[in-house]
Structures are given as structure tokens and as C-alpha cells.
Design a protein around this nucleic acid. Structure first.
Lengths: 218, 218, 218, 218
DNA sequence: GATGAATGAGACTTCATTCAT
DNA sequence: TATGAATGAAGTCTCATTCAT
């Protein structure tokens, strides 16, 4: 009858993506608790039971969103780094790719990630994601350290990683909230603060707390 | 009737503190949404209508908690820094005081702050708190910069501040989750990463993205 | 103002009874699954949250009904039996009181009990109730047995008890479904069937399966 | 197309049996309400619309199960009784066959029957089944009565039948819940309680309520 | 001032049941 | 014939919030 086909009764895979798209959008806009399954279903142009049938509970749905966006981000970062590059260069490219991705998907991964950090049900997921992020990052530090023939204590490295990741997250948040900012330039600025600090650490320049009169050294 | 006061009718200020104590405890344990006004009232040993009469809505109550804990933290930090110290020293003391405070109140400010970051109703509050934190921090950077007779663009400084604050927040979170860690030692490690980087920045050491063949500089 | 007092804001105990009354009524009429909390709340002239606040979950509510009605029944039976009566007499009075109670409360205990028997969540409760019923009954059998200087195996007694209780339950069901029937007369008829059988058993008259040619005795 | 038949397209009768098998299994395990059409269809290895096409509504499906299992039971009982036996013997054989059947199909008829008793939608079906059971049973009583040249009032007989059937149902339930029990032995025990009582009734031994001082005979 | 009693609103979730392919 | 896709309708439960005592 009509030249435009009816879009009902789509195959499962397609519908799932539509649902995830809608879910990401609504979660981003309203937050995990503020989002209602009704709105997500409406936005996906489908009835609620389908959402439950395909993607499960609200919690599971949120995790699914987090995973999909996280994978996309990871892929964007890893595909930007060739293994034959110098550690320095890989560092830079990763950061640029990461902030570039965040800037290009301002209502995607970064927002969900930020929300998930405060909610108890996602503690495990967040820990896992962070671990994966830290891995990508720490590998670079490790590489550089070993190339210089030096090493650092486990805890030492952990705190460093947390500081670097935290700094990057924070800048990513800032980027999300400043649509006018240029991701690449922001990446450059970022390199100038935290990563240069890390470089110093790697170079062996270390800072010691001053010892004052009347104050016992810890 | 009797000259000895009934201990039920406490002065308003005391009651408010009891309620805030209970609220902070419950919010920390359960999260903003997970906490119920019932549990808070119970924990404060008071009836729900009293909580509403004194501290208002759940949202207002949470903000009140955030404020009280935030003020305590701010006070702990500012009281640790004397104005006649060198910028370097003030930097170190601030960080140490901050992480010391976080470590000493593991279920207080840091937890509430972390939770509030993902929830839209608190976006304004969080922005304000961050601004206050950044102020304390940036003042130090500013001071040092000017002492060296140098200056940085507004945006440049903003990104730097976000990176530093983000790194510190992240390490604070880490500290909350690692009760066995020593705050002072952690502060030292932190200095070695991010702040040394900032020092480099202040010193004029700056990093530039490499320019490769076939790749246009941005 | 008006001479008729407003009946809102009743004390808890009163409201709980109202709710239980409504719940028993609705559960009896519609069955456990057919009943909706909405209808129960409506029928009690109260809002749903009150029902949940006072009496808990639907399942718990049903159990509460079962208990209240069960206790009433138990009390009706036990208060009809004086300890100084002969076992025979006590037997008769118990049965008469039981069927009398069932007949007088045709939408109470018996109906709930019948419903609960098929539903898995109440298996435990039903087992407990039955145990209590069997206790009241078996005590009488025990008494009589011992008075006659005889005894029976555990299993033997258990099957007998189940048969007697089942017979009584069945007759009670029949009574519920036949409003015109007279409970006392029914009790008399009942005595003539099952209890006389039990009496025979107690008297030592026992039945043996016939052994036929070509059939192995078990 | 091919001469070898596809094993997917089974004849209707076979499919229906598969479905009923699955339905009986699931209903037994989960109860009427607890069972979902999804699980039944899955268990039958068939899609839901097929179940609806073949056996109709969930309610109809349950009734179909009840019927099939009921017929099997009835057949087991009737085929165990030859018409030329004495009434006594037929009584015994029926009971033995019945409990034997129940014991051999612990997740079949008895469970469904027990469940159906509490659910209103099946009131009619249950009444009908009971009528059929009672018929088989009462026929025996009737026969014996007449052989003895005696008779009993309609109601009298009805109550007796209900008591006997209830006792048997109860023992059947007990048997279902005690897999270790031996059906035949249980049948023997059963005979010793209720049926002996019935025999007494038939023999004319009748019990009368005692008349006490100050208590009017009803 | 203080509280037990009360509720409106809405969330998530599950099913039996039916199209349209 | 057979099925994946789809949904309307309900139901249970929880919570922030406010009367009326």
C-alpha cells in the first residue's frame, strides 16, 4: 500500500539497539533513579514488557548501557593506538582519543559513568570498568618505567594511577559540561598538568614533605 | 511544673545536630535514594514530622548534610594553613589536611560528595562546593604563579584546576575505600604525581603534541 | 459539631482488626490470588499503604488471617471441653464444637484453610496448623488407648490421625457448602462413620487384607 | 518434498500429549498460579501459540490435565475391580488400587487435585470429579447395604461418603508427601480406620450423642 | 512542640494472550 | 503449520509528605 515499510515487528537485534539507544538517552537526561522504564519504553517506541523481555531489569538495563558505551569508548581508544609507537606517543594518542570520544558523545558513556559512581548497586561494575581503564593506562606507565630500568612499589603505582585516572575523569566531566571546548586542545592542556607530573615521577624526581621544627616526621 | 528540665525537649540547635548526625550516617550507608526518611527519623530517635519541621524536604536535608560536612572539611583545611607560610608549604599542608580529614571521617563528607555528583538535583550544590574547593586550591597556584612573575590564560588554569581537583577527589575516594591506608603517606604520594606536574607547569615546562607527517596540526 | 464522632484516625489495634475483617472477607470470596490488596484496603475503608504498614505483605496478611481465625476456632473447641469429662465425651464435644464453629463462620477459617492447602507459600503454616489440630485430636486417642492399656506404632497412629482429620476437614467443607445443614446433626453423623471406626481400632478389632490364590502377600 | 517424514511436524494427538505431559509437570511443581505458559511451552519444546491453538486457555489447559490424570486414575481403579467379587473385596481392591496409583504418580493427579480444590475457577470441575469418585465409592456402600437388606437416608449417606472420601484424600496427600511409605501397607492401615467405621455403620451399630442433665437434646 | 495515623502517587515487574510473518 | 514479536492490564510494594490529635 504505502511505499514506506511498516517498522513493527523488527528482529530482536535491531530492537535491542533501539532500546539501548533510548535507555542511554533517558538515563543521561534524568539519571538512574529519575528515569522511568515507562519513559524509556516510550522513547524506544515499544511497550515496556519488551524491554523487560529483551534486556531485563532496570538495573540490568543500566549495566547493559554502561557496557555498550564503555566498549565503544574502549574501542575508540585502543584503535587509536598502534603498538609500534613510542610509549610517549601512545600516551598522547590515548588521551586524545579518550577526550575526543567523550566530547563527541556528550550524553553517552561519561554521563552514565558519572552517575554510576554514586550508586551502590553498580559498585562492582564501576570497579571493573575502572580496572579496565586503569589497565590500559597503567600498561603505558609500566612500559615507560621498565624502559627506563626503574620500578615502583605496588601501592605507589596504585595511588598514581588513581590520581591520573581521577584527573582524566574530572577533565572529561568538565568537557561534557563545556560543549564549546575543543577536546584536542583540552587533551593538550591535560598533558601539561597531570601527565607531565607522572613523567617527573617516572624520571625519578620525587618530592618529600618538609620537616619543620617541633614537628615529628611521620 | 517541675524545676528540673525534661530532657525530651531539647533546644532546637541540639535537636538539629542529632538529626544531621543521623542523616549523615544513613545517607552514607544507603545512598541518597536508598535512604528513607523513616530510617533517618528512627535513627535520630525522633518522629518524622519533626524532621520535616526542622530541616525540610529530603532534598534540603541532604543539602544540609552536605553543607555541614563541607564546612567542617573546609575549616579543617583552612585552619591547617597559616598565611605566612610559603606557597609550597601551604600547598602541602592543605593536601595533607584534606586527606587527613577524609581519612578521619570516612563516612562523612567524601561519601556524600561522591553520591551527590551523579544526582541532578544537586548539580548546583556540587558546582558551588567545587568552586569553593577550587578557590582554596587555585589561590595557591595563583600566588605561586604571580610570585614567579608569570601568568596563565583563564581556561588554561581552569583545566589545570579540574585535573588537580579530580586527582585529589579520586585519591580521597581511594582513601575512603582503603581504611588501612595512612592519609599522610597517601598525601605524600599524591604530591609526587599531580602536584609535581603542576609545579612543572608553573615552572614553564610545557608539553606540545608531536607533529607527524600527513597529520595536520590542530 | 456533629454528635456522631468522626471515625478517622483510629488507634492501631482497632484498625488492624478492621483490616483483618476485610481481608478475611475478601480472601474468602475471591481466593488468595484472586484477591487484590486494593480491594482489601477499599473494603476496610483505608488506604493501601496502611495495610502494608500494619500487616505487611499480602502473604503475611493471609497468614495473619489464617492465624486469627485458627485461634478463634481453637479457642471455640478447647473451651467446649472440660478436662474432667470422659474421653468419649470430650471427643464428641470437640467434634460438635468444631463443626459448630465452622457452621457459624462459613466464610472464616474453613475457607482460608481450604485455600491455603493448595498454595506452596503456605505449606509451612498449614503443616503447623494441622499439627496443632492433630495434637488436640490425637491427645484424645492417646488417652483412650492408654486407658485401655493398649498402644499403637507411631506410623499407625499417624495414618489414623490423617484419615480422621481428613474426614473431618471434608465434612467441614461440605458443611460450608451446605448452609441449610445443621452442624450438630452433621457432627452426630460424622461420629457414626469415622470415629466409630477409630473406636474399633482402639478396641483391637483389626482388618487384614484377604490372601487369594496366586497372589503373593505383601 | 522428501519421502522421509520430518520429525518436527508430529500428528496432533502426539503433540497434545507432549503438551499435557509438560503442563502436568509444571503445574505440579509450581502450582496453578505459579506456573507460566512460557515455562510450559518451553518444557514441551513448542511455541506458546501452539499451546493456545491446541489446548486453549491456561484454565482450559489445567482442566485438560486434571481430566487426563483423573481418567487414568479412574481406569486404574476400575480395572482393578472385577464385578464378580464380593463387595468387601471390591472395597479393598479399590482402595489399594487408588493409593497404589497415587503412590506411583506422585506428581500427577493427586497434586493437581489438591491444588484445584482451593481455586474458584475449578469449583465446578472439582465438584464433578468428586461426584465421580463418590459414585465409585458409594456404589460399593450401596451394594453392601442392599445386600444386607438395609437402607440409609440420602443425607446420611452423603455425609458418610464425604467423610470417607475426605479421609482417603487426606491419606493420599500424606502418601504424596512421604515417598518412602508403602502404598499397600498404607491402604491396609486406612482400612483399619475409616472403612471399619463405615462397616460398623452398615452393620447398624450406631452412635448417639449422650444426653446430660440441663442440656436439651437437639 | 511532638507524634501516630494516614495517603496519593508512582515505580517496577509479570503474565496471559494475540498478531503478522 | 509454527513462531518470534508484541502488548494491555494488573498487581505488589515503597516513599515522601501531611493531617489531626
Amino acid at each position: 500500500m504505502s511505499s514506506t515499510p511498516t517498522f513493527r515487528r523488527l528482529p530482536r537485534a535491531v530492537r535491542e539497539q533501539q532500546m539501548l539507544d533510548a535507555a542511554v538517552k533517558v538515563f543521561s537526561r534524568r539519571g538512574y533513579h529519575g528515569a522511568s522504564m515507562d519513559e524509556i519504553a516510550d522513547d524506544a517506541g515499544i511497550s515496556k514488557p519488551m524491554v523487560y523481555a529483551y534486556l531485563g531489569t532496570k538495573e540490568e538495563l543500566f549495566v547493559a548501557c554502561l557496557h555498550r558505551e564503555g566498549n565503544r569508548m574502549t574501542q575508540a581508544v585502543t584503535s587509536a593506538v598502534a603498538p609500534d609507537l613510542s610509549a610517549d606517543e601512545r600516551l598522547w594518542r590515548s588521551l586524545r582519543a579518550f577526550l575526543g570520544f567523550v566530547g563527541a558523545h556528550r550524553d553517552g558513556w561519561a554521563v552514565l559513568y558519572r552517575q554510576a559512581r554514586g550508586e551502590q548497586p553498580f559498585a562492582g561494575e564501576i570497579a571493573a570498568m575502572r580496572r579496565r581503564i586503569v589497565e590500559v593506562v597503567t600498561e603505558l606507565l609500566d612500559h615507560t618505567l621498565r624502559a627506563e630500568g626503574r620500578e615502583a612499589a605496588e601501592v605507589e603505582l596504585e595511588v598514581a594511577a588513581y590520581a591520573l585516572v581521577g584527573a582524566t575523569e574530572s577533565v572529561a566531566d568538565w568537557l561534557v559540561d563545556h560543549p564549546e571546548a575543543d577536546p584536542e586542545q583540552t587533551a593538550t592542556r591535560m598533558m601539561n598538568v597531570a601527565w607531565v607530573g607522572a613523567a617527573q615521577l617516572l624520571a625519578g624526581t620525587s618530592w618529600r614533605p618538609p620537616i619543620r621544627r617541633g614537628e615529628a616526621p611521620s
